[in-house]
């Protein structure tokens, strides 16, 4: 194919990738919840409706680390106090930052790590382990490097071996059957390294937090450096969390 032909194809196809992943807001996406300041009285409708016990009342707070974005609470609230926006930036570097308080309107901020930014700001290689995940998170993670979200442009790539990886991206509630494999993968990674917990299951156990078949001892010994909530998280959530964490300005 000649140069001109390929340029013509390029022109007719247009560009598919999202030019600005930092400010794009997806349509039809259920993202950051906002809690209004209306009074609740004795009502606990939202907390009772929540399948993952992510909501505490008086005052109402939502733990995004547990939230599966099912919007049962939004439906259950007679006062329309809880509303899900389409804001995709949900990541946090500290677990407590994932708690959404009443009246908070600011989007979540990931605290950048200067040390990791210096090391991995230009190139971050990720190894993914699905420890009992349902493949929803994994599909979205895969999408993070497709032509639309194109995380490679920031030097972020998946690699096949933990020996080559800088960060371990964990999905799933960490089942007993996978605990040794996760530990092996983590031990096989060279330092410096960090752990990213993706999805409600990985962050808190999600729907399976009380199941007998999970064993989360690994996460207690190795704390995640970055949390990416969602069920599953949007690729934009994941990419933006990493970019914020590494202090990458686009």
């Amino acid at each position: 194919m000649s140069l001109f032909q390929s340029l013509r194809v390029r022109r007719s196809q247009g560009t598919q990738y999202i030019r600005d992943v930092r400010s794009t807001v997806p349509t039809g996406f259920r993202g950051l919840p906002v809690i209004g300041e209306a009074g609740c009285g004795e009502c606990r409708g939202c907390a009772d409706a929540c399948p993952t016990a992510a909501i505490t009342v008086a005052p109402v707070r939502i733990d995004l680390g547990r939230c599966i974005f099912c919007a049962q609470c939004e439906e259950a609230c007679p006062a329309d106090k809880i509303r899900f926006t389409s804001e995709p930036k949900l990541g946090a570097a500290r677990r407590e930052d994932l708690l959404i308080a009443e009246g908070a309107v600011e989007p979540l901020r990931v605290q950048a790590s200067a040390a990791f930014a210096k090391l991995f700001g230009r190139s971050l290689k990720l190894r993914q382990v699905s420890a009992g995940g349902c493949n929803a998170c994994e599909l979205e993670l895969n999408a993070a490097v497709n032509v639309n979200f194109d995380a490679q442009r920031f030097g972020i790539e998946w690699v096949a071996s933990p020996r080559h990886a800088d960060a371990l991206v964990l999905t799933g509630p960490l089942t007993q059957n996978m605990k040794e494999a996760v530990r092996l993968a983590w031990d096989a990674m060279p330092e410096p390294r960090f752990l990213v917990a993706v999805g409600a299951c990985a962050i808190s156990g999600g729907l399976y937090r009380e199941a007998e078949a999970i064993d989360r001892a690994f996460l207690e010994s190795v704390g995640p450096a970055l949390f990416v909530p969602g069920c599953p998280p949007h690729p934009l959530t994941f990419v933006n969390a990493l970019l914020d964490f590494l202090g990458i300005d686009t």
């Binding site: 071996s161 933990p162 040794e180 092996l184």
Partner: peptide
């Protein structure tokens, strides 16, 4: 660390 065996136990 032990040889990486793809997490096979």
């Amino acid at each position: 660390s032990p040889t990486w065996g793809c997490g096979y136990t």
